[in-house]
């Protein structure tokens, strides 16, 4: 006797839901496991007084995104007239347009 299509569909959907649930549990456990590593990284940021993630190393304004500058001539900030792929990938920091400093 062949299995009904509906049984197969519910089995497949159930298996996918189970897998998704297992992945959610994995995510939760991994977050707990990674907590000390994140604390260590936060400590490195504190002692070295770092300001940025090392995501891109091809241009200064994407290496140190938070320090990117909208005010300098030739506009060294992401999404300006772009030379580097990373500049078109990252958005400019929001504070560039609403800085405390007066725009020259």
């Amino acid at each position: 006797m062949t299995t009904r299509y509906s049984t197969r569909f519910f089995t497949l959907t159930g298996a996918l839901l189970l897998l998704a649930t297992l992945l959610l549990i994995h995510a939760g456990r991994q977050r707990v496991t990674d907590r000390p590593l994140l604390r260590k990284s936060a400590e490195l940021v504190r002692i070295l007084e770092l300001t940025d993630l090392c995501l891109f190393t091809e241009a200064s304004y994407t290496r140190h995104l938070a320090l990117a500058d909208l005010r300098t001539p030739f506009q060294e900030y992401p999404l300006a007239l772009e030379h580097f792929p990373s500049g078109s990938l990252a958005s400019p920091p929001p504070h560039l347009t609403e800085s405390h400093a007066p725009h020259h």
Binding site: T51, D52, L53, L65, A66, L67, D69, R71, P78, L79, S88, L89, A90, S91, P92, P93, P94, H95, S99, H100, A101, P102
Partner: peptide, 28 residues
Amino acid sequence: VKALPDSRPIIRNEILRTYDALFSWRGG
């Protein structure tokens, strides 16, 4: 900025917001 007009302060909240806005849906 008032005392040193050629200076540019960047506060921690702005650093955090930079990475919150990174890869925003609106651009790039």
